[in-house]
Amino acid sequence: MSEAVSALAGATSKGFVDVTEVGLVGMVTVRGDLGDAEFGKAMSAALGVEVPEARRMLVTEGGKLLWMSPDEVLFVCAHAQAEARISTLSEALDGHHHLVANVSDARAVFEVSGTGSAVREALAKLTPADMRPSHLPVGEVRRTRLAQVPAAIWFDDENRATIVCFRSVAGYVFGLLAQASKPGSELGHF
């Protein structure tokens, strides 16, 4: 098998927040009726974590489970673990109407870190989503857009956010984040 590489080979930018392309990250999309208790039970057993409430993210041994829509969750784990998780999930969900797909290499992942409200400030320049802690607390996932492309944002803690976008626009998103965090361009809004 060919050697997997991430979109930007770990590119970094230093500004009033630091931007790092995280490298290879495993991502498994699961689609099915999250409102169906039996489906939820089967998926929970396979991943070892409850079905998250709407917009929430649950952290578990070896991964995170993110609510994406009423019929979609995303499991984020180590890149090498994705295929094994897919086997477990496919087996557990057999008999339920579902889809399990390895989307790891279809995405790019960035970590944005800084102090105070710097991270929220940089992101607020790029998205119409409300970046106040009251509206995007740690543990909640916001799917939105960054300038002209779709992205998902969550805060791992107050000083660190993760951004996921499509791999094809990784360079564009890195450029946006680097530009939005240029020293001297702080807005002091938050």
Binding site: P128, A129, D130, R143, T144, R145
Partner: peptide
């Protein structure tokens, strides 16, 4: 009404 997000028109 499906995810509870307050969406801007541009989303």
């Amino acid at each position: 009404p499906y995810c509870g997000v307050a969406c801007d028109e541009t989303e």
